[in-house]
Amino acid sequence: MIDPVFRNSLRECIFLLLLWLACCLYTVTYCYLAGYLVHEPHPAATGPSLGKLVGPLTAFDRHPQSLTTPLGLGVPDWVFYGVMTPWVAAVVVTILFCLYFFVEDDLSLSSAERDAPGTIHD
């Protein structure tokens, strides 16, 4: 029988990696496009840089005077929407994950596993 701890852990692992991917795609895309004064390629890159590969993005260069601070918090708009908002969302998803998705598996060893050769009991 497949170990239930393995099965449940794998399911949780996939969920969390997808959560990370969603946060990565949103935050990197939003902050890079909305929060940079200049979109120049990495000068120290060895070979062509990723900045060059994605093409010229100068249309997204921010003008310093365009900066706003939503809700009067004094946080630059691109930080507020690109970092703080997804951060709050990620915390909410984490709470839901722990409450409803995470399985409280029994990690103690069965007698068979305890008696198995090769197990070192510290």
Binding site: N8, E12, C13, L16, L19, W20, C23, T27, W87, F97
Partner: peptide, 15 residues
């Protein structure tokens, strides 16, 4: 770090 806690503990912790 918005997901660092849950990922670094949850992905492998139990297993």
């Amino acid at each position: 770090y918005m997901v660092a806690g849950v990922c670094s503990m949850g992905v492998m912790g139990k297993r």
